[in-house]
Amino acid sequence: MIGRPTAIALIAAGVVLTATAMVLPWYSTAYAGGVEVVVRAWGTEILNKPGDWPAGELSPWYGVPVVVTALLLVAGVWINRAALAGAAGQVGAVGVIAALVVSERGHAVDQQGDFAVGFGLVFLAVGTLVALAGAVAVQREAA
């Protein structure tokens, strides 16, 4: 059984990994002509945007819900229930991102684009799992 110090260390590691994910690219698709769409936590960057690119800005701030869950994880160092809420909430939020990644990959393949998962997404996924392990361990320790 994991003791409380180890559980807290796991939560802290999860928060650090999640925070790192906030500044790294999550996924990208490269198209012909050097056009590349890079999705990050704080918006979508389009490199070499062609003139006929659709109007409007498809640039969601996926980082907002993740910051909320990360703050709950930090609060979880003192309040056990906050850790569980943060970790479970982050799992849910990452679930939506997973659905979007599968969708975007499908679109990229259809349009002969080159889809790639970025380090940000890897850090986010690993950070979420590590934080969840810590949050669950904290609950078991408290029981």
Binding site: A55, G56, P60, Y62, L84, G92, V94, G95
Partner: peptide, 29 residues
């Protein structure tokens, strides 16, 4: 149950962020 409720809140929050932007994109575009 608490974890399930929090996970559902996480899904809803992230979905809301995505949809808010997609709706704005559809309108502007």
């Amino acid at each position: 149950a608490y974890a399930g409720a929090a996970a559902l809140a996480g899904v809803t929050g992230m979905l809301f962020v995505y949809l808010l932007n997609a709706i704005s994109f559809h309108r502007e575009g």
